[in-house]
């Protein structure tokens, strides 16, 4: 077995979450992260539509049409939760209080540019809160497949797709590796099982620093 599954990517990402952190989780793989948090790590999950302290999906009897996450799904809240309006919600993001935003991507560049909201020629759905999140969160973590469905690298020298933010990504976790965006370039922190430097470089569209080289 080469590389990580979606669940294993989430499991690896969960290691980066510490007790007491405020975290915004985007749709897709990031929503799997809470399942992999140890019991002694209490993380407050933010939903940009106005919740701190998002819990699991609710019991049938507790479903409330007025209580949804940013993906429009019914949710529950944890003890100590709070509700607020959308301006307050984005104030805590832009104001730098959100410790971490975890989201997916179409492309990430060597300089940490992120493209995850629009593909020319395809119908634009709007960026929602993604541009605010990456501009404001203290740290931005991208979880994605290393290559797109056409087999092209998603980590590139310069994004060809419209940007969500420029120089905003701190770390990328893919099915193949954990890669940090540094001032010197993309630095490989960890390989997924069965992945080596040669293979990773052949599937990445930008230079990688591996073991300092």
């Amino acid at each position: 077995m080469t590389g990580w599954t979606r669940e294993q990517i989430a499991q690896r990402a969960a290691v980066d979450l510490n007790d007491g952190m405020y975290v915004n989780l985007g749709i897709g793989i990031p929503t799997l992260i809470p399942d992999f948090l140890p019991n002694d790590v209490e993380v407050i999950i933010h939903a940009e539509n106005g919740i701190l302290g998002v819990g699991t999906y609710p019991d049938e009897a507790d479903i409330d049409p007025d209580l949804i996450n940013a993906g429009k799904e019914t949710v529950s809240v944890k003890r100590g939760a709070s509700f607020f309006d959308s301006a307050t919600s984005f104030s805590m993001i832009r104001g730098g209080r959100m410790d971490l935003a975890v989201l997916g991507a179409f492309q990430v560049s060597a300089g940490g540019d992120l493209a995850n909201w629009a593909v020319p020629g395809k119908l634009i759905k709007g960026m929602g809160g993604a541009m605010d999140l990456v501009a404001g969160a203290a740290r931005v973590l991208v979880l994605m497949e290393h290559m797109n469905r056409s087999g092209e690298p998603k980590i590139v020298v310069e994004c060809s797709l419209p940007l969500t933010g420029r120089n905003v990504v701190d770390r990328i976790i893919t099915d193949l590796a954990v890669i940090d965006v540094t001032d010197q370039g993309l630095r490989v922190v960890e390989f997924a099982p069965g992945v080596d430097a040669h293979m990773l470089r052949s599937r990445t569209g930008a230079p990688l620093i591996i073991d300092g080289r």
Partner: peptide, 8 residues
């Protein structure tokens, strides 16, 4: 109404 009805 509920757009995406999810339960535990």
């Amino acid at each position: 109404q509920i757009e995406k009805r999810m339960v535990k």
